[in-house]
């Protein structure tokens, strides 16, 4: 899948964001947090897993998903997300010259 496809979905980005914050979560908790049903959540988790970005571990009936730290893609996404929320000053000088 191309990057625009993988990251072009709101729910998938939400999943990545949440897992970047809490490290690992089970499926129903992810579903609850992204406000989607189990089936939809599973679909997106599978896509992200196929891309090598996430992986999961089974504990009985519980599946815990987390970032696959061995994947360069996963690390890049994590770094993107960590930098995203850093409050940055808008580029004032640029805006003023444009105006």
């Amino acid at each position: 899948m191309q990057i625009e496809e993988v990251l072009g979905n709101r729910l998938r980005v939400k999943i990545l964001k949440i897992l970047n914050q809490v490290k690992e979560l089970n499926v129903s908790e992810i579903a609850r947090r992204i406000n989607a049903n189990h089936k939809t959540t599973m679909k997106h988790l599978k896509i992200l897993e196929n891309e090598g970005i996430l992986y999961h571990k089974r504990f009985g009936r519980i599946r815990l998903y987390r970032f696959n730290i061995n994947s360069a893609k996963a690390r890049a996404i994590q770094s993107l997300m960590e930098n995203w929320d850093k409050s940055e000053e808008p580029a004032k000088s640029f805006r003023t010259t444009v105006k």
């Binding site: 809490v22 490290k23 690992e24 979560l25 089970n26 129903s28 908790e29 504990f59 009985g60 009936r61 519980i62 815990l64």
Partner: peptide, 9 residues
């Protein structure tokens, strides 16, 4: 596993 769920088992 700090976020291990509390339900379902």
């Amino acid at each position: 596993h700090p976020t291990f769920p509390k339900r379902g088992f």
